[in-house]
């Protein structure tokens, strides 16, 4: 299980760097997100505890939320 957690943390950081630092391409961020997604689905289909899948999908969601809140357009409610 520790492998899954390491993948999530590394992929999360890679994704964050590649989005924030423009020199890194979109491809690297897609790879990082894919790693988290694949990790989440892998843990689910291997019937590990659901918390590992939740961590995988949660990492992507959190990273993209941070990115879109900082960089994305906002509207008044």
């Amino acid at each position: 299980m520790i492998v899954a957690i390491i993948i999530y943390v590394v992929a999360f950081l890679l994704a964050l760097i590649s989005f924030v630092w423009k020199r890194l391409s979109l491809v690297s961020s897609i790879c990082a997100i894919a790693a988290m997604l694949a990790g989440g689905l892998y843990c689910y289909f291997m019937q590990y505890d659901l918390v590992y899948s939740i961590l995988g999908f949660g990492s992507i969601a959190l990273f993209l939320l941070i990115y879109l809140v900082i960089r994305g357009g906002k509207r008044e409610l």
């Binding site: 939320l65 941070i66 906002k74 509207r75």
Partner: peptide
């Protein structure tokens, strides 16, 4: 448990950012 701590951290971070979700504009 490490996974519990990670999940708590993740949940708290999502709690900080999720209120902005309805404000994101995808035009």
């Amino acid at each position: 448990s490490a996974t519990t701590v990670l999940r708590v951290v993740l949940t708290l971070a999502i709690f900080v950012f999720i209120p902005y979700l309805p404000r994101l504009n995808f035009k």
